[in-house]
Amino acid sequence: MTLYLLRRVLLAVVTLWILSIIVFFAGQVLPGDPGRAVLGPFAAERAVRAYDHQLGVDRPLLVQYFGWIGGLLHGNMGTSYTYRSPVEPFIASALANSGKLALLALVIIVPLGIAGGVVAAVYSGRIIDRVISLSGLAGSTVPEFVSGIVLILVFGIALKALPITAATDPGASFADQLDHLILPVIPLVLVLFGYIARMARAGTVEALDSDYARTAVLKGLRRRTMIRRHILRNSLLPTITVIATQTGYLIGGLVVVETLFNYQGIGRLIFNAANGKDFPMLEAGVLVIGVVYMVATLIADVLYTALSPRLRVGAAS
């Protein structure tokens, strides 16, 4: 088990390293001349040079990369071009805000998705299955800004039932914060419901089709008991991994949702950094998202291993 964990962490580190190269490439190599990008086309050539030198982007690529990665390792994620100050505080507060939104989405989506998938599987081939499967599929491919706008139109403007911005005044009560987060959360939930329900359904259908399900039924168990005792444990295990994978997409959705609902999260931070060509901020934000994703999948893998007897014993011996 420890050996497996060690291997898994090592792989995650390698993946992160590759990720850092991708981000570095996109953020520092492709833009060519950040000084020009920031100062605009009309700035004097000398000012641009000076600014580039100040940023350090006129150094050889390898030197830049190691400087950047070395900084990261020391918790120094760079200096924002726009704010001319370290990016960490911005990232931290944005991450906390996004965390609230993402957590709320997960709390809603995980039970809903699993229940939907299991119900669809148990009644597979019937109307309820088609409804769940198709609505899940539709939800997962309609972009968040489309569903978000429909929601704003219906609940925010036509019915005036919910606030259409997510941001609250500092010190707002929990209930107030929640109220503001309801509309933004729904597009995220819509996108993720399909994925999770689909996986849960596939796993459950497979388990229901299995010989051991037949064994359980022929033992004389009630169908309900059979599903609870014999099916769910086997069918939901793979869903854990999917949920973790989907956290990545969840954060992707945040960019749109936070922009649409004017919420100061990591997505909006990245969006603003991109618009302002604030590459250090952009890189840091993207990398942080990658780390969150890696940690989520790592936890999922460990959980999966711990819950699956096959792997648990296999790793121990």
């Binding site: 792989l11 993946t15 992160l16 590759i18 990720l19 991708i22 981000v23 996109a26 953020g27 492709l30 994978t245 990545g248 997409y249 954060i251 992707g252 959705g253 960019v255 749109v256 990245i270 991109a274 952009l282 993207v286 998202i289 990658g290 994703y293 890696m294 999948t297």
Partner: peptide, 15 residues
């Protein structure tokens, strides 16, 4: 896996 670690929209966005 590294590419997967980022939402498609964000990678696209970055580039």
């Amino acid at each position: 896996e590294a590419v997967l670690a980022l939402p498609v929209v964000i990678v696209a966005f970055l580039f």
